[in-house]
Amino acid sequence: MVKILNKEVQNYINANLNADLHTLLLKKSPFPEVSMQEIVQQIKGKQVAERKFPFLLKEGILFPPQLSLEQSSSEKTALYKSEILKGKKFIDLTSGFGIDAYYLSQDFKDITLIEQNAELLKIVEYNWNVLSRNARFINRKLEDFLNENQEHFDVVYLDPARRDQNKNKVFLLEDLSPNILEIREKLLSISNQVVIKLSPLIDIKYLVSVLPQIFRIDIVALKNDVKEIVIFLSDENKKEIICNCVNLESGEPAFTFVFGEEENAVSEYDEPEKFIYIPNNSILKAGIFNLISAKFGLKKLHPNTHIYTSGERITNFPGRILEMESIDSKGVKKKEQYNIISKNHPLKPEDIKKKYGLKDGGEKYLIFTQSKKGKIILKSV
């Protein structure tokens, strides 16, 4: 660990941040005590940090192998979660590279990180010293720690591994490592609030059906890409489950609803009017298609088309608002540039570009979709 921090080695790493890593791996390391694999690992780490957690682009920071980098939360989603959690004693039972722990624990005085990978934990402990952050670092399996622990915490956080022994992705709670259904009672015995980060692909209704202790669900998207589902558990009797849909770095407002509201909501339908509304992906993941229509007074184009319309522009909509007009296929001019959207339509964007000879991009939109009367095309005004 110390040798990779040698000034000459660090200068070499910084000089090769844009180098082809495959070519670099074929070269002999210019440093006898540091392998080229170790050098490339640090270069990859800096590249990932630049887009996911730039706060680690600081002299003296060490990076783990790529899998640990890929599994880490981004700085943006970790910061979002940190604004929710407050207290004195915080524990992360699956700390990994420690990005979530670093942000989530910033308003806590007593911080504990549990990690079963000893080498990874050494890197995290070293980095936290560089960043002047204090914590207890415990190299233990989560299950062993829970069996021995006598402490109580204000917040327990964990991000279960979502791959099985064959490295295939898994999503059900009982297939995760650790098995959430097996340890939930133990978790709730050491804290009144348990926070669990889950895959963005997990089904919301399934979660509610198997975990009656859920009182809050956050669907977190970053630039319209759903990154994680965060659930909050408590032993206290909560009559409602509050759900929050957020789309970070979009400028769009968050949308909050009570789980179950969708069942009683009803959509009205109409042909496209002046304004078209496309919900962001956190809303679509929540499956609240009728609730959005009812809450904002919008009309839906079709039961299976999650696009909405109104004659007057409404504000605070969690998604894109476009001023558009209906056209026929003759109104699509070849070689023009559009952002092409296809929803509930047989042609995919690539097929549409090929069929009509269109270029992708620019500021104008072209939507291929369906209303209750059939297939339609909408074009930016």
Rank of each mutant, 00 (worst) to 15 (best):
D107K: 15
K76S: 03
N247V: 01
P253M: 10
M324Y: 04
S326M: 14
I84W: 06
L198Y: 05
K169G: 00
L181H: 00
K238A: 02
E323L: 06
N166D: 13
Q37E: 15
H152I: 15
I138P: 04
L67N: 12
N179I: 05
L347K: 08
D154S: 11
K205C: 01
N264D: 09
S329L: 14
I91W: 11
P64Q: 11
Y365H: 13
S250M: 02
K223E: 14
A294G: 07
Q165A: 08
I352P: 11
K169W: 08
E38W: 02
S189H: 10
F215I: 01
S380I: 04
Y269C: 07
D270G: 12
I321F: 07
S293F: 02
L17Q: 05
L25N: 02
N280R: 00
D154R: 11
L207T: 10
I219W: 09
L57D: 07
A161N: 05
C245F: 12
D218N: 15
I4V: 15
K285Q: 08
G45W: 01
S191D: 04
I242P: 00
L21A: 03
Q150M: 08
D360C: 00
V2S: 13
L207Y: 03
S189Y: 06
E268G: 07
E325I: 12
L201N: 12
F368K: 08
L188T: 10
F171I: 15
E119H: 09
K109V: 14
I138H: 05
P346Y: 09
I214R: 06
M36R: 00
E261F: 06
F275P: 02
K372D: 02
K223N: 13
D92V: 07
L121T: 11
L25G: 01
Y102H: 07
S310A: 15
K274P: 00
L378C: 06
I229G: 09
K333Y: 11
R136T: 09
Y308V: 08
R216Q: 15
L248E: 09
P303A: 12
S293N: 05
H152P: 00
Y356L: 12
D164G: 06
L17T: 03
Q150N: 14
L284F: 08
A101M: 15
I4P: 00
K348Q: 12
V208F: 01
I367D: 07
H22S: 13
N179S: 12
G319Q: 04
L62A: 05
S105N: 02
S68F: 13
R133H: 13
K28T: 14
Q165H: 04
S29P: 00
Y102P: 03
E228S: 12
P212W: 05
K122Y: 01
P65T: 12
L142Y: 01
K86F: 14
D203I: 09
K205D: 12
E148Q: 14
K375C: 02
K335F: 11
E38N: 14
R216S: 13
L207F: 05
G319S: 03
K109E: 15
I111Y: 02
V332E: 03
P54N: 10
L57R: 04
E59I: 04
G260Y: 06
Y365C: 03
L181I: 13
N280Q: 00
L85H: 05
I43Y: 01
F257R: 10
S35N: 08
R184N: 05
E185L: 03
P212H: 09
I377V: 15
Y356N: 11
Q116C: 13
T305D: 10
F153P: 04
D164L: 05
K169N: 08
E323V: 09
I241E: 00
T369S: 15
